[in-house]
Amino acid sequence: MAVNRDSNGYTFAFAITLVVVVGAILASIAMWTKPYKNANDEVKKKMDILKALLPSEEANDISRKNAAEEFVKYVNMEDAVVLDMNGNVLEGEDAFSIDIKKQYRDKKLKAEEKKYPLFVATNKEGKKSYVIPVVGTGLWGPIWGNICLAEDMKTIQGATFDHKTETPGLGAEIKQAFFIKGWIGEEVSDENGFKKFEVVKDNSGALPSKIDGITGGTITSKGVEEMANRCLEIYVSYFNNLKK
């Protein structure tokens, strides 16, 4: 080979060419795929809200293909509200576009600046239900989900939990139906206000709102507990105002 591959000049030239080529390929692919990815994310968000909202038989029929059209059937975006940390309504906000995951991760954002969206849905019988997006921390990374309250604004009617990095077979089980089943029917408030949840092993624990945890997934279960308690409390004060 004519070129000396160990010379400084060649090394630099190679490095620069490589950086430029790789950078250009990556940047163009990122730009090209971005609209598709945003569309996918939006559909996914609608899917998750619907899954928390609908009874499990119907929720299983929701797929990426029909999520958008089903979403309009149930959820009226005119009714959706955005709350601040004290449960007061913020005017002029678009509930759907708020990225609570990003907001949660952003440690520089002050608590007062955080926004809490609430989706209101009406089913075929005309009954209202309320979908609350939640976000928290599991063992390895973020966890998130939606909790759906029934018309009385306190009974949990459905829920979804999701994650990206929890241990398969342990913490990752928060996605599964048996874990979510434990939440359904629990009440988030009584005459004294907000009721804390507790995710426990067997029937231990002192609080009345107990949910069966996951063996070996204790830290993730506790993360779900913290997430539900922190997020739901904000909405309960809003619901109390609404009831008055």
């Binding site: 092993k201 067997d202 231990s204 069966d212 506790k222 507990e225």
Partner: peptide
């Protein structure tokens, strides 16, 4: 707070073969 004191005894992951719970 009080609620968490009860549960924190359960939190450690060191006790591995504990109760039969749904997998």
């Amino acid at each position: 707070d009080d609620a968490k004191v009860v549960t924190s005894q359960l939190a450690p992951n060191n006790n591995t073969n504990t109760n039969k719970l749904p997998e």
